[in-house]
């Protein structure tokens, strides 16, 4: 579909950071900032991203990074974007890299407002489906029946559909991406870089520790999330123009769940229930793609 995209990296992200070996989030950060290039200012709330950014006076990225409070990323990015505009700087990019807790939950109010005002920055949510930096607690991005330390019997409500919520703000660009498809992720960042206004990219970033994955399973589980239809990769422009990049190949959801200890408590009936929900969502998305 989008085969043949050549990743064009400028070395902004460096080795020697503090991420776990095999961390998907660090991989995502690499493709994001290396695509944006060094003329970028980053905004990062408390998260693993903040840890990977580096303790003072070290930095894993050759660009200024402002570390803000958990709920204020979009407002902090707005302040930078507006100040750059006031200074007549029309070239420096502003990018937020925040986790799902800082985006779906506590940071959602300021994000929604920035989207409504169509502020000129890129917001990337690195979604590992829970508060993994604090030891795996439930967020509103945690999927149905997934184990976290605060949902020991499995979460009883579905994951919030943030992709659709952001698109409903009619922002210029909304895209989903995941680390198992690095060319697709880099292409979306490059596309967003050339646009103006609020651009939102939702990146599924499997957490080895929080999901209970083998050290080398990050890319594999990321690809299975797409192939099973759990996390389709698509774009929505101006809230209405849908483009599918990679969707379900009909791979059973059970194959995706089986790699993750956070689902090992599930019985057969629950697995089937998840399969039905995924199928329904996939059909809903296809209807939107068809219109």
């Amino acid at each position: 579909m989008k085969m043949g995209y050549q990743i064009n990296e400028e070395k902004v992200f460096n080795s020697g950071h503090a991420a776990c070996p095999g961390c998907s989030e660090a991989l995502a950060m690499r493709y994001i900032v290396n695509t944006l290039g060094p003329d970028t200012i980053g905004v990062v709330p408390p998260s693993c991203i903040a840890i990977i950014s580096g303790p003072q006076p070290l930095s894993s990225m050759r660009m200024p990074v402002y570390q803000t409070t958990l709920e204020a990323s979009a407002a902090s990015a707005t302040g930078i974007a507006r100040a750059l505009k006031a200074k007549g700087n029309d070239h420096t990019k502003v990018v937020v890299m925040a986790g799902d807790g800082g985006t779906y939950d506590i940071g959602f109010q300021s994000l929604s407002s920035a989207a409504e005002r169509n502020e000129d920055f890129i917001y990337v949510c690195l979604d590992n489906e829970g508060y993994m930096n604090t030891g795996s607690q439930k967020s509103s991005a945690t999927p149905y029946l997934a184990y976290t330390a605060s949902t020991p019997a499995g979460k009883q409500t579905p994951k919030k559909n943030l992709a659709e919520i952001m698109a409903a703000h009619r922002i210029p660009y909304m895209a989903t991406a995941t680390t198992g498809y690095p060319e697709d992720l880099a292409r979306k960042v490059a596309k967003a870089k050339e646009m103006k206004g609020l651009r939102f990219i939702l990146v599924l970033a499997p957490c080895l520790d929080g999901w209970g994955l083998a050290d080398n399973a990050g890319p594999k589980v990321s690809r299975l999330a797409v192939e099973s239809g759990v996390f389709p990769l698509y774009e929505i422009e101006n809230g209405e123009r849908y483009t599918l990049n990679y969707g379900s190949k009909g791979t059973p959801v059970s194959q995706y769940l089986a790699l993750q200890k956070r689902y090992r408590h599930l019985n057969q009936a629950q697995i089937e229930e998840i399969q039905r929900e995924v199928d329904l969502e996939w059909q809903r998305l296809q209807r939107k793609l068809a219109t």
Binding site: Y66, A72, I80, A83, S110
Partner: peptide
């Protein structure tokens, strides 16, 4: 809260 968050970063810029 957001107004003050934006004040801080605009000032730091």
């Amino acid at each position: 809260h957001s107004a003050m968050a934006a004040c801080i970063t605009a000032s730091l810029t």
